[in-house]
């Protein structure tokens, strides 16, 4: 999986990158804010998005843009789970360990594949439906 890390606490970002690397995934970017996140979004399948960033609780907004414009599947990381609205996204509570990250990646990757399959089916059926 190609993964984007959106976390403004650089030490935590680096630790998460290490964990993801150990799990055999490719970290395609590390972003501390919306702009950095969106510029690296095209290369990512999944994104770990921290809910509270230095510019406020902008995590959910960034997640929405990553999903809508770039088809990225989002996993939230947070120390305040109550701040994440239940939109079906995977949530990993801080502090987390490698096992929690591994399981989150598995779930998110499965969800990502389901979404891709659904999209390709829709593409195939689309023209047929038009006829």
């Amino acid at each position: 999986m190609r993964i984007l890390v959106v976390e403004d606490e650089c030490l935590l970002a680096m630790n998460l990158e290490s964990m993801l690397g150990d799990l055999g995934h490719l970290v395609v970017g590390s972003a501390g804010n919306r702009q950095e996140a969106l510029s690296a979004a095209n290369e990512a399948d999944l994104a770990f998005v921290n809910v509270r960033l230095s510019d406020g609780a902008t995590g959910p907004e960034i997640a929405e843009e990553l999903r809508a414009a770039h088809g990225v599947t989002v996993v939230f990381t947070t120390g305040s789970p109550e701040m994440v609205s239940d939109d079906g996204a995977e949530v990993v509570n801080k502090p987390y360990d490698e096992e929690m990250i591994a399981s989150a990646v598995d779930h998110a990757a499965a969800a990502h594949r389901r979404k891709l399959r659904a999209e390709s089916l829709a593409e195939i059926r689309g023209p047929a439906a038009a006829i």
Binding site: E9, L11, N15, G79, S80, N93
Partner: peptide
């Protein structure tokens, strides 16, 4: 309390990162 809890978790996460990165 929510803020304290958030900061505490963040601090633990920082500590965890320092420990695991230092060990690594």
């Amino acid at each position: 309390q929510a803020e304290l809890s958030h900061r505490m978790k963040n601090t633990v996460a920082m500590t965890q990162a320092v420990v695991s990165q230092s060990l690594r």
